[in-house]
């Protein structure tokens, strides 16, 4: 499927929303790929971190369907190394928030096994609510 590119998309509401929530200029990224090269959890992702920001640059809302934005652990390795000073974890957070506002819930609380809720620290469970639930 050929992606339609136009000013209404690349400067459209989705791009503006991502830029506003994340505080990042999407076109500051020149796609060098260093974030993807050093990401410690990249193996589990369906899109490279650099592809996530690329799709956001192009205004492709399909990026919200990627598992990458949920797998990103905000470890900050990429932002520490980014030559253009782009805070990619903030961008990932923005994409998660947009996704959650659309009603997507990645975490089914009821499905969590009781042993896990006993062992996992309270803080992590609350953090999980914030990150994965609307």
């Amino acid at each position: 499927m050929r992606v339609q590119i136009s000013i209404d998309k690349v400067r459209g509401p989705f791009v503006r929303q991502v830029e506003e929530i994340s505080g990042q200029g999407l076109l500051d990224c020149n796609q060098c790929g260093k974030c993807s090269a050093g990401c410690p959890v990249v193996a589990a992702m369906d899109l490279l971190p650099s592809q996530v920001i690329r799709m956001a640059q192009l205004g492709m809302e399909e990026v919200l369907e990627s598992n990458t934005i949920w797998i990103c652990a905000s470890c900050l390795t990429c932002v520490t190394r980014c030559p253009k000073g782009v805070d990619l974890p903030r961008l990932m957070e923005a994409l998660r928030q947009i996704s959650l506002r659309q009603g997507v819930a990645e975490l089914d609380l009821g499905a969590l096994p009781p042993e896990l809720t006993k062992e996992v620290p309270q803080l992590a469970i609350v953090g999980g609510f914030r990150k994965y639930i609307k």
């Binding site: 992606v3 339609q4 796609q31 592809q51 192009l58």
Partner: peptide, 15 residues
């Protein structure tokens, strides 16, 4: 314009 964005792997079209 029919092009491609190899960074995202997407064929693109611009009017």
């Amino acid at each position: 314009v029919w092009g491609v964005d190899t960074l995202s792997g997407q064929p693109v079209e611009v009017a």
